[in-house]
């Protein structure tokens, strides 16, 4: 089986993650959608690395993982700060920003 099949799988996962970010109102669930999109990109990188026969793609995927870990830390800190300020993590609540 051609490794390109895994790239198709990655696009499907990316689509699901994008739909979750656009649809869900719960900030944590939307954030998990972002994580799924990052992981789909990782899967595509690893599959391309297999197609090329080089491991540079795997190193790139490793970098993406590190950046994702840093992003999760800051993002969850923002969610906690938001929760402290408004007692909710719904993404619709800050609509009052429009003033």
């Amino acid at each position: 089986m051609n490794p390109i099949a895994f790239v198709y799988l990655a696009t499907v996962l990316f689509g699901i993650g994008a739909a979750a970010v656009l649809l869900r109102r719960n900030a944590i669930i939307a954030f998990m959608g972002v994580e799924l999109m990052l992981n789909a990109a990782n899967l595509a990188l690893v599959a391309f690395s297999r197609i090329h026969g080089e491991i540079d793609g795997q190193v790139m995927a490793f970098f993406v993982m590190v950046v994702a870990a840093a992003e999760v830390v800051v993002g969850l800190a923002i969610i906690i700060a938001l929760f402290r300020a408004r007692q909710t993590i719904s993404l619709d609540e800050p609509a009052e920003l429009k003033g």
Binding site: P3, I4, T11, F14, A18, A19, I51
Partner: peptide
């Protein structure tokens, strides 16, 4: 709109990947 947008992204990506013509390395 969200479902349409996400589906559109997926279709776009799949069609882009479909145009690739790589022979996987042995």
């Amino acid at each position: 709109i969200a479902l349409f947008g996400a589906g559109g992204v997926a279709v776009l990506l799949i069609s882009a990947v479909g145009q690739l013509a790589y022979e996987p390395a042995e």
